[in-house]
Amino acid sequence: MTTSQGIPAAVSDVRAAGGTLGVAVIGTGRMGADHVRRINEVISGARVAAVVDVDADRVRSVADGVEGAVPYTDPAAAMHDPDVHAVLIASPGPAHEAALLTAFEHDLPVLCEKPLTPDPGSALRVMAAEQRLGHRRVQVGFMRRYDADYLKLKDLLSRRSYGRTLLLHHKHRNADTPPGFSNAMMIHDSLVHEVDVTRWLLDEEITAVRVFRPAPTTHAPARLSDPQLILFETAAGQIVDTELFVNCGFGYQVRCEAVCEDGTATIGDEHGVHVNAAGRWGGDITPGFVERFEAAYDRQVQRWVDATRRGETEGPSAWDGYAAAAVCEAGVAAQTTGERVEVRMIERPAFYG
């Protein structure tokens, strides 16, 4: 149910009572459990009302650590809970479409971790269902848009502080990968962040992708081409390259350099304390993405809660999730064929203008 102002009835009731937003967290793996901790201990204005996972023992264990949280193994049952006013989806990507469509049935606001869905076809179905509601309900969890350094870079590029942006250089390095990590997952699970942040920083769609696969590191699992070099072309003619190295062995690094007409701007690699001692200089390298982007995740969830309590939806939309899926689909094709592959997308609906 929705009020005449387009505000979900459950959220309107919370606002009228000056109360706290009850959130159902779907998925209690590494990311979901971290969001449970974040809502319970870090941010304000919300509480964990329900936790959902197909693993009954795990979800009970997570719920036991949060006062008032009810464990469920079925997302639909959790969304029927009257104490649930909004949903945070952190389950595996293939389960997202069903959870999103169920949330729409209840007109519940959703923060959906990337990917929106694993492929453009399912993302189009989600977009169609959201448009039938007549208002946005989905924010996609592209957390780099909430990172302090990326926000500064976005501001510089938007103001054209150094003229028009010509090139972007990305680096994305992980210490190692879990068992079963595949070449396609390098695109869908890792490169997807560069896809979104490129579109956001340049305010342009990516129109073509090419993937180069140099000699692999000896630390890469069998059949995994690592590292890879990916080139994007944009609608405005900018070229963007990404070095993707997911078994670098030494930690987690994310870097972006914008090359503009009158200067360059670089973020990344400068976090923490650097020391000079005993004839050496150096510092710490972040071990993983959760630690590197902890503040961005905090800011993202707080902004989502604040907007939801106002009856609004902001941040990356279902269109952004669809666009990322379309570019990733082209990226996997380019990875497989070694050819330049054009990105196939529908025209952007006015609903997401």
Rank of each mutant, 00 (worst) to 15 (best):
A9Q: 08
Q302W: 11
D34W: 05
E314P: 11
A307N: 11
A98F: 05
D64E: 09
R60W: 09
I89D: 12
V84T: 00
I89E: 12
T242I: 08
K154I: 01
G331R: 06
F212W: 03
I285L: 14
H188E: 10
P179E: 13
A235T: 04
V259S: 09
K171N: 05
P8W: 03
N174E: 13
A129R: 07
K152F: 01
D203P: 02
F245T: 05
G180F: 06
G180E: 11
L21D: 09
A86L: 07
D269K: 14
A265P: 13
R58A: 14
V126P: 12
A63C: 07
I230V: 14
E291K: 03
D241F: 02
L100M: 15
E270Q: 06
G141T: 11
P214F: 03
N247K: 08
N40P: 13
A148P: 03
V126Q: 10
R47W: 10
G268W: 14
E41V: 10
A148M: 02
V110Y: 12
H172P: 06
Y252S: 12
V66I: 09
Q253F: 10
V240C: 01
W200C: 02
E339K: 08
L224S: 00
A236S: 14
R255D: 14
V110I: 11
A235N: 12
M1W: 02
T177C: 00
S12T: 03
D189V: 04
R213G: 02
P109I: 07
E329C: 05
V209F: 11
V51M: 03
T3N: 04
D57Y: 12
L151S: 03
Q228D: 09
D241R: 04
S161Q: 15
R15P: 07
M31A: 15
I7M: 03
L100Y: 05
L166P: 00
R160H: 01
E329I: 02
R136Y: 12
V51I: 02
F250R: 15
E113P: 09
R213H: 03
L157G: 02
V66G: 14
E291C: 02
V273K: 06
H80W: 07
A295K: 11
A148K: 01
A76S: 07
D81A: 04
H219C: 09
V195C: 14
R280A: 15
S122W: 00
V343G: 10
D34K: 06
T234D: 08
